[in-house]
Design a protein around this nucleic acid. Structure first.
Lengths: 217, 217
DNA sequence: GTTTGTCTAGGTAGGACTACCTAGAAAAAA
DNA sequence: TTTTTTCTAGGTAGTCCTACCTAGACAAAC
């Protein structure tokens, strides 16, 4: 990276902003080129001044940080985004990644993490606060351990598992039957057994389950 | 972290292993406590010696690195996993995260990244090779730009968009109708129009689409 | 050797979604 | 204001899935 990394910080809380300012300004690698307190000003600054990194709070008056990220992506703007948030909600993290965000830092860890995050993202990398990634892992483990407590995937027989995979491939019972050289009625019998074992009820619940758990099959 | 981080490296290619060995052994923070060349030996070592970190190749004779990770998770084993891979395939990364993997390092970047990865993961963090995360972002951008080329979500009207969101919430047409105080037949008419605009055909294709694109709605 | 589990497959019923069609009322655009 | 789009809603038909049921063949476990 030639020269110092140009950084913009955006947060509607002046006190938090000044804390961030001190931490970033004290690091020789970074050059704090601007601040903003709301979404519109932030977007304007980014489009005009093109800083290397924009550190955005999620909860911003006007545009949220995620909305700014989404507007920017595809616009071949060189500025990479780091999102600051209070909440470690899985859905928000997914949305952030979908919006082309380069980093995701929890406010409670901001002081310790933000410098590493800026450095990593400036070099084209990706940064998640350790507690965020820990949360992601925990969430996934929880999903698996729930599956272990529950009737669960483990109770499925070979044939059931094979069919469940094909369901996750969006195949109908008829298509699955043709592929396995068995009767569609047999496939439906397996479906029924799978649904019973997994305690799935209601319309197309098995298809939904298969799509959501495709990776664990 | 008390003392040095105990590290196990597992790869079936002796040459690559020795390269890795030199890099890790040269760092004072880490203590290389073992090596293995196949999956079974690796799993045995992990269960018995409980290193802090296991660096696993994906392509291993016997068990793959991902399979080891999956077997370990939930077993309250303290060892955290870093996966080494040649391929930056999205599906594999997702599976790795689902398996509770702490780090994901591309072999082409291994020499530069592995030390950072071990340090981050040993402290409870999460590490993705910059080029992997770059790939993830690129993949997501590609998905969005494809959506822009295609007939796309943009052509949907307000009512259609509202209904599509509710479909993604796994609600049936009847439930959606009750929620919006309209006839189920109206909801079905909207479904039909949405499917036409998105060029979706076949059984439950709209439900599938809604579930897969929930985050972009 | 009998029991248990699994795979197979059919009957019947009903709910939910797709695929076509028409058509009036309301809102938005020209 | 006229035209177009959108929202509303119904008809009919067919497919797919769920929810119950029974039942024979076969292999593994007891």
């Amino acid at each position: 990276m030639a020269g110092r990394t140009k950084v913009l910080i955006v947060d509607d809380h002046p006190l938090f902003r000044s804390g961030l300012r001190q931490v970033i300004a004290a690091d020789a690698r970074f050059d704090l080129v601007g601040e903003a307190g709301d979404g519109e000003a932030a977007l304007k600054f980014i489009l005009e001044k093109k800083p290397d990194i924009a550190v955005l709070d999620v909860n911003l008056p006007g545009l949220t940080g995620l909305e700014i990220a989404r507007k920017l992506q595809g616009k071949k703007n060189p500025t990479r985004i780091i999102i600051l948030t209070m909440h470690k909600e899985e859905e928000m993290i997914n949305r952030a990644l979908d919006s082309g965000v380069g980093g995701f830092v929890l406010k409670e860890n901001a002081v310790e993490d933000i410098l590493d995050a800026i450095a990593a993202v400036a070099e084209g990398g990706h940064y998640l606060s350790p507690s965020v990634s820990g949360f992601l892992v925990r969430r996934r483990n929880r999903a698996e351990s729930l599956a272990a407590e529950k009737p669960g995937l483990d109770n499925l027989t070979k044939a059931e598992r094979r069919i469940l995979k094909l369901i996750a491939d969006k195949k109908t019972s008829k298509e699955i039957a043709a592929e396995l050289f068995i009767s569609p009625r047999t496939v439906e019998a397996h479906r029924a057994n799978i649904s019973t074992k997994l305690e799935l009820h209601g319309s197309h619940s098995l298809l939904q389950f298969a799509l959501e758990n495709r990776s664990s099959l």
